[in-house]
């Protein structure tokens, strides 16, 4: 039973990964990654890592993938033209070589545990209780550093993705402050080509506002 489940989940994980790389549409790539992550969570469950599997589904397949979908929808992920550079041919060859090398290393390893089903484990192995106890005792410092890292990343994302003044004309705000007037109305300044009112330095210093020619 466990072998059947393993093969279903493993085939799902690998095919999801292939889908991420092969699908041309970015949106479908994200969906393939969601499938891959859920299959991987099943593999984690087979390895008795309940809490990691739950975190994988909630944090990864839930939150992070929603972020991806939003960004793909915002940027407008269309079909991608394939690269013309030599990497298009060399890349897959390198990846195949890496896969073969890793498999050879695994087959040739002297680790005896690899062919076994794993060491005997205590009851409650991988439950939130055990993981939480480890996080708050042995691994307290990495836990705090991880929370600090999350804070820094959140602030960094806000700083990176915010609207910057000066880099681009803010057209929505412009239209709200200076709505376009109907034709044959407006001021002489606008007729003379001066359409922006928020440039006080264009006017000579000390001159009253009403005395424009």
């Amino acid at each position: 039973m466990s072998a059947v489940l393993f093969f279903i989940a493993a085939i799902g994980a690998v095919s999801g990964a292939i889908g991420v790389v092969m699908l041309r549409n970015q949106f479908y790539s994200v969906l393939a990654l969601v499938f891959h992550l859920v299959s991987l969570a099943a593999l984690f469950l087979l390895l008795r890592a309940e809490f990691v599997a739950a975190a994988q589904v909630i944090v990864y397949a839930g939150a992070v993938m929603v972020l991806y979908v939003f960004v793909v929808a915002y940027v407008g992920g269309g079909e991608e033209i394939s690269s013309r550079s030599g990497l298009r041919i060399i890349g897959p060859l390198l990846a195949i070589a890496l896969a073969i090398e890793l498999c050879v290393a695994m087959l040739g390893t002297a680790l005896k545990g690899i062919s076994g089903k794993g060491a005997p484990y205590v009851p409650g192995f991988g439950t939130p209780e055990h993981i939480g106890k480890l996080f708050l005792t042995t691994y307290l410092f990495p836990f705090e550093v991880a929370s600090l890292l999350l804070l820094v990343a959140a602030i960094g994302a806000i700083v990176l993705a915010r609207r910057r003044r000066g880099l681009e004309p803010d057209q929505e705000l412009e239209a709200r402050y200076h709505p376009p007037r109907p034709s044959w109305t407006g001021t002489m300044a606008e007729a003379g080509g001066m359409t922006h009112f928020d440039e006080p330095e264009a006017r000579p210093e000390g001159e009253p506002v009403g005395s424009q020619h």
Binding site: A17, S29, S82, S83, R88, I90, L98
Partner: peptide
């Protein structure tokens, strides 16, 4: 296998999102 597929994707694809 998954790691090698990821390497291939980083090398081949052009969109930073992918």
């Amino acid at each position: 296998l998954i790691f090698a597929i990821g390497v291939a994707g980083v090398l081949v694809r052009r969109s930073p999102l992918v």
